[in-house]
């Protein structure tokens, strides 16, 4: 609602005080939202800071020793041992491995399903599919993790004879269930936002339904579909419980998706409970957390930038 910003100045006495107080309260709630995001970063980064500044921590680990090859050229993550080793490369490899598997499953499925819903499905079916995906989004990730660990792992091992029961394929399938709803929702929104005139024009030129969907609607909605993939990547990258339960939690430096692995997020979840407060290990875990925050922050920013661009593009075209 647009009204002159100082309309309450026209009021008198008690009423004016009440209005001013309430407006201040409502306005400050908006600042709390911004503040929450800032505080999250500040307080996670604060606990990670000693990794850069403290000489005590540097005796055990520095940023450099976390990425460079250790003696005899290995990369080992073994923070709880006589001589703690903090190579984050096996964690990076594990995270990328499972994220890739999850996206390879989730993105084609979700985008094809979004095309079906927005272009081909009759109204009734559309009203049915959307709630189903919303329900899928509502399954707690600990339940998906449990399902991947107890059921999917057994099925896959019986079918393909994996040496490692818990591996990146098992966890990736579980993870894809968490990614599908977000990719689907954003992509479906983008496809539905394409004006009907585009489709009508395409049909008038003699294109059939699938040609219209594939050659006209999908290209027009491309920034939104791309945003869906970026946001899906962000979701997969930071997901904790599914990976924690179904990954096998072995920090191995292996690109093979059939072997066990360990991700950044699962490492924090598995180790923070036992860690000594203020120890180098504690600060390294917060550093990983800050890293996760920064990566997902920029992925989200990029995703929403593309969504905004799509909106501007479609609206701009409408005006022309």
């Amino acid at each position: 609602m647009d009204r002159p910003p100082n309309e309450r100045l026209l009021l008198k006495g008690k009423r004016r005080i009440i209005e001013t107080l309430l407006e201040t309260a409502v306005r400050s709630s908006a600042f709390v939202v911004i503040g929450a995001l800032v505080l999250i970063f500040v307080f996670v980064a604060k606990e990670a800071l000693p990794l850069f500044t403290s000489a005590d921590v540097h005796k055990e680990v520095t940023l450099w020793t976390m990425v460079r090859p250790q003696e005899n050229g290995e990369f080992v993550w073994q923070p709880v041992s006589e001589k703690p080793k903090y190579s984050i490369l096996p964690l990076a490899v594990g995270t990328l491995k499972v994220t890739l598997v999850a996206l390879l499953i989730a993105i084609p499925l979700a985008i094809l399903a979004a095309i079906f819903t927005s272009e081909f499905a009759p109204q009734l079916l559309r009203e049915l599919i959307k709630p189903v995906v919303e329900l899928l989004a509502g399954i707690p990730s600990v339940v998906i993790g449990f399902f991947a660990l107890m059921v999917v792992a057994t099925w896959l091992q019986d079918a393909f004879g994996f040496v490692f029961r818990l591996n990146a394929i098992t966890a990736g399938i579980g993870l894809s269930l968490a990614v599908i709803p977000i990719v689907y929702t954003v992509a479906e929104d983008a496809l539905s936002a394409v004006p009907q005139a585009f489709r009508d024009a395409s049909t008038a030129l003699g294109a059939n339904q699938w040609q219209t969907a594939w050659r006209v609607v999908l290209p027009a909605a491309m920034p939104g579909v791309f945003a869906a993939c970026v946001l899906g990547f962000g979701r997969a990258f930071g997901e904790t419980m599914i990976v924690l339960l179904a990954s096998g939690n072995a920090a191995m430096m292996s690109f093979d998706p059939r072997e066990s692995f360990r991700s950044f997020s699962a490492t924090i979840a598995a180790e923070l409970g036992e860690v000594v407060y203020g120890s180098p290990h504690y600060h390294v875990l917060f550093f990983i957390g800050a890293f996760l925050f920064v990566i997902t922050f920029f992925l989200n920013l990029a995703g929403h930038w593309y969504v905004d661009r799509l909106r501007a593009r479609l609206e701009g075209k409408l005006k022309a």
Partner: peptide, 8 residues
């Protein structure tokens, strides 16, 4: 905020 990983 909606995209920050739960573990963070």
């Amino acid at each position: 905020l909606a995209g920050v990983p739960a573990i963070v």
